[in-house]
Design a protein around this nucleic acid. Sequence first.
DNA 1: GATGAGGGTCGACAATGTCGACCGGGCACG
DNA 2: CGTGCCCGGTCGACATTGTCGACCCTCATC
Lengths: 254, 254
Amino acid sequence: MPGPIQSLERAAAILRLLAGGERRLGLSDVASSLGLAKGTAHGILRTLQQEGFVEQDPVTGKYQLGAELLRLGNSYLDVHELRARALVWTDDLARSSGEAAYLGVLHQQGVLIVHHVFRPDDSRQVLDVGAMQPLHSTALGKVLAAYDPVAHREAAESEWSALTARTLTDAASFEEELALVRARGWAADLEETWDGVASVAAPVHDRRRMPVGAVGVTGAVERVCDGDGVRAGLVAAVRDCARAVSRDLGAGRF
Amino acid sequence: MPGPIQSLERAAAILRLLAGGERRLGLSDVASSLGLAKGTAHGILRTLQQEGFVEQDPVTGKYQLGAELLRLGNSYLDVHELRARALVWTDDLARSSGEAAYLGVLHQQGVLIVHHVFRPDDSRQVLDVGAMQPLHSTALGKVLAAYDPVAHREAAESEWSALTARTLTDAASFEEELALVRARGWAADLEETWDGVASVAAPVHDRRRMPVGAVGVTGAVERVCDGDGVRAGLVAAVRDCARAVSRDLGAGRF
DNA sequence: GATGAGGGTCGACAATGTCGACCGGGCACG
DNA sequence: CGTGCCCGGTCGACATTGTCGACCCTCATC
């Protein structure tokens, strides 16, 4: 198999670099960060700018991501079949559960949020679509790690940062947790990612019964849990939603 | 000035092609659409796939946009200064007006929606962030065309499709409309884009008083208008919001 | 089992992107 | 006010790199 296209790889690396670094970056920063000659970096940046993937501040000369990426990312959502099928079901899930509903898929070493329905109250909330969540500490991530072998491997290889005091950070207890997830068919995250926040999630399968994503709800631990665990009604609602989306994808009855 | 990087231009063209065509495209479709040899198109697609910008359906072999674009597009929003400043003000605008609020910037030949606050009721709404709107028929577009010379030129060069019976489709009446926009400081779209839908918008300026975007509200024409035009209170709210965002960007008092 | 369409591979060729030295301007500091 | 550094940008030679078109393989169709 012939090699990948060098200039494209470098362009992708530049875009990721710009996406990672919070503030804008100058030409020299970009070139030195990636070990490229300034001329080379400039050529790539100029082309990316021309195509709208990168914008340049006219006064400082620094570069940042461009608007075309937003447009294309939006087009990605339009094409996304899983998301299209899940729209109405997650809407119902948020309504019936009273919590924010999420749909996530595996992407690289994390969960990419492809749909997010706000909690149905009038509070100010920020949209998480396009954001990434860790595999090892969120309910969505655990579901993917439990059912998708690729996700499982990615989770094993990624770093296990302790986001809160309750985050699982050793492989043994995580595997135990995944076994539990597989056994009961849903996953929970009890303040393992954010203090005071809990989430529940269940897997979505396609017509070949392959795991393709996860749906779940996230909310304040006081509302999500009662007594000794996640509210049973919430678990039922999440699993119903996951089943509904799976059926919509053609997975048939369970 | 040296030429742009050919392979990057082609990769961008492929991404745009995939974003445009509704359904997934095969290798041959891509190659023939862009006049490339199959081998060339394959090399680019393989690299794009490896970088996550493109995904391939494992059974049909067809290609579609990849998740990395969504992630990068989201990063674009994070960096976007105008959007960051406008978040709270547009939120207030939606709340006080009771309609959906939008923030748009010029991108290519249209308005790119970079922020969208849902109408504050419990109806089901779809997020328009990342979507494009025409320059010649929407309030946001008219504002940009009226104040930004680049937008004005783009509007003049783009095609004037009649989206509804009330869309302005000739240059003369459009210029007249723009003069009106400049004279009173805000623009309206009365069923010129969608039947039954009206919108109002006002310009946002940066610290050098250059137009950088537009904010506005959109809603059912029955709610937005009264008697012979847009409700005065709505216009005031939109213009207040635009001024607030401009001031936040450092534009100073008016 | 022939046929055709479509995805993917191969190897030669030269077009293409890359490199490093070089420009010019802006800012800070002396 | 001069000087020197830093930074974005340009230039031209070089050979790496991407490109082309023919070819292969699989699968679905007839």
